[in-house]
Nucleic acid binder design. Structure first.
Lengths: 156, 156
DNA sequence: ATATAAGAGGACCGGATAAGTCCTGATACT
DNA sequence: AGTATCAGGACTTATCCGGTCCTCTTATAT
């Protein structure tokens, strides 16, 4: 399915909310504004802070703030921050011995190119791009309520 | 991680082997040639046959044959055949009600564009491309033995 | 006609991995 | 000093994938 984790989805939601609010916002506040469960929001924010996509302010009146504007934030970075580096797990945890037995492992390094293509595609889209697109679509659905999985069916 | 399933990896190996052998090959034969466990090869072949990427011949002296040359087989199709349509599972099994509660779901349809970008990237690479690349790399590693996960580290 | 080789199609079990929750500690504002 | 907030980890649960096996159908060969 080539799917990315739900956490990544949440991360985008959270980041967009941060951009919308503008100033410093607390985790509970963002949870309230986005309907994402609060512990999950906190988790996501910690991860994003650890990777530098948001900056944190501790103490009373603390919270989180975007480190960069959405326009300077490629999706690839968000995915990499939450799910780890973008990689199509090919050839992992396979003992080299098992491979040498064959005349020539027909897979060595094959996926690098594919991986690179995906990486570039994701690097070229910023969160601002994603937000902009929905604005255009808002016309055909007043209260959109996440598209069920029309996305999936029409994907390919 | 944006990872694709191991089955997809196997599918590519199997398809390449099919192309290499040329004629009709049986599942056990391919398993033997690729070191992929036989039941798994059989499973992959069934899936590929069901989606028309390979054609099957039943009965004694039966086996599998490539339906198309590798050059006409984009990676996207293989992935779609094995893992299902390419989709970044966003907005799945979330009750619409929970979403309407919010002022406006900031996620509706957001991932479509990203999804499309990936789809295009994968549609542009054929299995022949993947095979060709490795041929070029064969020089720097005599018996390659699948690159561990250098792939992952360097990915982003 | 019968035996045999091969694929078709499903059911099943086990293991890995993500999702989500909670707890404890550190820090800074009031 | 007190309180609000983030930091960081541990833990539980659930889901999904990987892998195996069994049975049925089909077609060739003897």
């Amino acid at each position: 399915m080539l799917r990315l984790s739900k956490l990544t989805d949440y991360a985008v939601v959270v980041l967009v909310q941060l951009a919308r609010g503008g100033a410093v916002q607390t985790a509970p506040g963002i949870a309230c504004a986005t309907a994402v469960p609060e512990p999950t929001v906190a988790k996501v924010l910690k991860i994003l802070a650890a990777t530098g996509l948001v900056t944190s302010l501790r103490g009373a009146r603390g919270g989180y703030r975007l480190a960069r504007p959405l326009a300077a934030l490629p999706v690839a970075e968000v995915i990499a921050a939450v799910d780890g580096p973008i990689a199509l797990t090919a050839c992992v945890d396979v003992s080299p011995v098992a491979c040498e037995q064959q005349r020539s492992c027909p897979m060595s390094g094959r996926w690098l190119r594919v991986n690179e293509a995906i990486r570039e595609a994701l690097a070229g889209i910023t969160l601002a791009d994603m937000v902009g697109e929905t604005g255009a679509e808002a016309a055909r659905a007043a209260h959109p309520a996440r598209l069920p999985q029309m996305t999936i069916e029409e994907a390919l």
